[in-house]
Structures are given as structure tokens and as C-alpha cells.
């Protein structure tokens, strides 16, 4: 247990982490090279470009899209994306009539293999509190102005189940290649906190 007392200032995390890391290395509980590899993986290798490739493939390959909606974990693994915090995935599809929004009210559950680590706002109290209470207002603040009649579905992630939104494909992109399409897909559109520029479901 922490020796920190109530109402005392919180201990300095910089020094605490240094102390912890030196103790854990000294005790042989962690390998410094493994730490560097973990940081490099999640800072530089894994990120929303993975999810964008999944989305672009679903837009261009109808059988992949149906596999993705039926068994997201397996379909995402086909693309080589799997592992920590993506063990059980569900993909929810935005349509003319439904807009999906993902949150983790309890913490920060997020599909790491396809989106990387979550942004600060996703983990912070205001979004966690408000996304389930006033999602339309939150979406409007994010620049997603839904037309009347669009149903909003909010998915509260858990440690067991993580969601990826399959955003709507913008009109006029029929001639684009899968790779070009992937470049259009934003991180926020796969959380439901945005739409792919040029796509409908907004009235802009």
C-alpha cells in the first residue's frame, strides 16, 4: 500500500517511476530491453493506421465486411492485427440511420491492436461521464452534427469486449484504391467521435 496520506500532496510520479524501475531491474523482475520494446511497439508500431486498413478492406471487399461484422476478432487477425487488448473485438457499423460511439466509462478499454493507445480525452473524466448521458451533445462538440432521425448507439467497452466503429464510406470514392481509402480513415471515425471527411451521416 502507498504510504500516501489523505490530503497530502500526491507523490511525484517522476521520482516514483524511477525508483520503481530501478528496483524492478535490480530484482530481475523486468528486463530493460523488454521495456524499450514495449514502448517502441505502442508508441511507433501499433496505431490507428492498422484500423484504417481494416476499414478500407471492409469498404472494398464485401465478403471481408461480412466476416468482420460476424466475427471481428478473427477478421482483424486475418490482417495480422491481434494481441493485447484486442482479444475479443466487436465491429459496429455506421449506416444512414445509425451512428455508433465508443466509450469506456469505467476506465480506458480500447482496441489496442487496431487503434493503438487511447488519446488523453478518451481516458479522462469528462468524456467518460458525458458520452453515455448526452452523446448527441458530445458528438456536436466533436463536429459530428447528426441529421434528425439518426439513432445514436453508445457502446461501453469492458476489459472483455472492445469495439471498433466501421465508419461510412464517403461518396465519390469509388475509384480510390484500398490504400487510398485507408488514408482517408481517421482515428476518431473509428471511435465514432468523428466521421470520415466527406461522408454522410452529418449534415455538413
Amino acid at each position: 500500500m502507498s504510504k500516501h496520506q489523505h490530503n497530502a500532496p500526491l507523490p511525484d510520479p517522476v521520482l516514483r517511476v524511477k525508483a520503481l524501475e530501478s528496483l524492478l531491474i535490480e530484482k530481475g523482475l523486468v528486463d530493460p530491453a523488454a521495456l524499450d520494446l514495449l514502448i517502441d511497439t505502442y508508441e511507433n508500431q501499433v496505431g490507428p493506421r492498422n484500423g484504417a486498413r481494416v476499414v478500407a478492406r471492409a469498404w472494398t471487399d464485401p465478403s471481408y465486411r461480412s466476416r468482420l461484422l460476424r466475427d471481428a476478432t478473427a477478421a482483424i487477425a486475418e490482417m495480422g492485427f491481434e494481441g493485447r487488448q484486442g482479444e475479443d473485438m466487436v465491429v459496429v457499423e455506421n449506416t444512414e440511420r445509425v451512428h455508433n460511439l465508443v466509450v469506456c466509462t469505467l476506465c480506458s478499454c480500447y482496441p489496442w491492436p487496431v487503434l493503438g493507445l487511447p488519446p488523453v480525452w478518451y481516458k479522462a473524466a469528462p468524456y467518460r461521464a458525458r458520452a453515455v448521458r448526452e452523446p448527441r451533445k458530445v458528438l456536436a462538440e466533436f463536429g459530428v452534427d447528426l441529421v434528425d432521425g439518426v439513432e445514436v448507439r453508445v457502446w461501453d467497452s469492458t476489459a472483455e469486449l472492445r469495439y471498433l466503429v466501421l465508419p461510412r464510406r464517403p461518396d465519390g470514392t469509388e475509384r480510390l484504391s484500398e490504400q487510398e481509402l485507408a488514408e482517408l480513415v481517421t482515428r476518431d471515425s473509428m471511435i465514432g467521435a468523428g466521421v470520415v471527411p466527406g461522408s454522410k451521416s452529418t449534415d455538413t
Binding site: 524501475e21 521495456l35 458530445v138
Partner: peptide, 24 residues
């Protein structure tokens, strides 16, 4: 809890100690 503060230019980790805490 106030407004949702979104920073589009945000880095994956804000500070070095966060990198270390994550990896540990």
C-alpha cells in the same frame, strides 16, 4: 467534469515517466 479537452496534436505519451509507467 467540464468540457472534453481534445488536442489533435497530442503525442502517444505526454511525458517520459508515462512511457516508463506504461512499460513497467
Amino acid at each position: 467534469f467540464g468540457p472534453i479537452d481534445r488536442n489533435p496534436e497530442e503525442a502517444v505519451f505526454q511525458q517520459e515517466w508515462e512511457r516508463r509507467a506504461f512499460a513497467l
